[in-house]
């Protein structure tokens, strides 16, 4: 198995001309079919109460496709992380339903949630993904160890080879680079064959090269292993690895792109914030600053 190089995607990138994209939110079915691995209906999340209450999610209806990579984008504070946490049962919902792989997450108790996380879900966070006292290998097999499930050696090997960490398995996190650490985290998220992998800005702290490796690997797991991945990102280049991009603003789903390219995504972001998008190819240098850049766009728009 080979990690697709970012070059393969760069070819798909768009010309210098600003793009017109039509953004709309397609309606969702009341009870989705088997092509949907996780969904939410009427999802509301309010933090705090009274005067200081924050409506982080304000009635979100969303489907995440099976064997699909979905990116969630939106300005800072738009509720991306909250949506992911609610989907993954890391946070309770105020109202609405969340179903993952046939399980109604929003009604689960702590014990069931723990089991769910351990067996059906994979996580990749922006940083501090690994337990510092364990080796890379021990970190990867941690969810299986916790669940006291045997490690499927063949699958483990294929995952380890895919992330290219074979010679790093005995190292501790402190002896690995940031990119390697995130790849270990990805391998850990995948090794238990979860129904969905949730990744919150997995490349937020990485340089473009390491980002490409991690994203390529996630995409690869979808294409080759049939994995379902939901990923939050600020970075249009990162989002362009996905099959589908969802846009959030003020806790609502405001648009969706299929087969995205960095340019399309930039255009869509520009459109959403009402500002004129500065056209131009998303160079690798841009990719690094894309995160803060889009925040700035959002800031001027409000």
């Amino acid at each position: 198995m080979r990690i697709p190089s970012p070059r393969a995607f760069r070819r798909a990138r768009t010309p210098d001309v600003p793009l017109e994209v039509r953004l709309e939110v397609p309606p969702v079915a009341e009870s989705p079919g088997p092509e949907v691995i996780a969904w939410a209906r009427g999802l509301v999340k309010v933090y705090g109460s009274g005067q200081t209450a924050v409506r982080a999610l304000d009635g979100v209806d969303v489907d995440f496709g099976r064997a699909e990579m979905t990116a969630i984008m939106g300005p800072s504070g738009s509720g991306k992380s909250t949506l992911m946490h609610c989907m993954a049962g890391l946070d309770s919902v105020t109202s609405g339903n969340v179903t993952v792989d046939g399980e109604v997450v929003s009604r689960m108790r702590e014990r069931a949630l723990t089991t769910l996380r351990r067996t059906r879900l994979g996580f990749v966070f922006q940083a501090f993904n690994l337990v510092p006292t364990l080796t890379a290998e021990e970190n990867i097999t941690l969810p299986l160890d916790i669940a006291r499930r045997p490690v499927d050696r063949e699958y483990f090997d294929s995952v380890v080879d895919a992330v290219g960490l074979r010679d790093r398995l005995g190292h501790r996190p402190s002896e690995l680079s940031g990119g390697q650490q995130q790849r270990v985290a990805c391998a850990r998220a995948l090794v238990a064959r979860p129904a969905v992998v949730f990744a919150d800005e997995p490349t937020g702290n990485l340089d473009s090269r390491s980002s490409a490796e991690v994203l390529g690997f996630l995409r690869h797991s979808v294409d080759e292993l049939g994995q379902s991945v939901v990923m939050v990102t600020h970075d249009p280049t990162a989002a362009s690895y996905a099959h589908r991009v969802l846009f959030l603003a003020d806790g609502r789903l405001v648009g969706e792109l299929r087969s995205p390219t960095p340019a399309k995504i930039l255009a869509a972001l520009g459109q959403l914030t009402g500002a004129t998008t500065k056209a131009g190819p998303a160079t690798e240098a841009d990719a690094d600053t894309a995160g803060p850049g889009s925040e700035r766009v959002a800031g001027t728009g409000s």
Binding site: T114, T115, R117, R118, L121, F123, F128, V131, I146
Partner: peptide
């Protein structure tokens, strides 16, 4: 705290 959160997120139960 953060490490504990991580462990819990990947499925470590309270009792564990």
């Amino acid at each position: 705290t953060r490490e504990i959160g991580l462990l819990r997120a990947v499925g470590l139960g309270r009792v564990q």
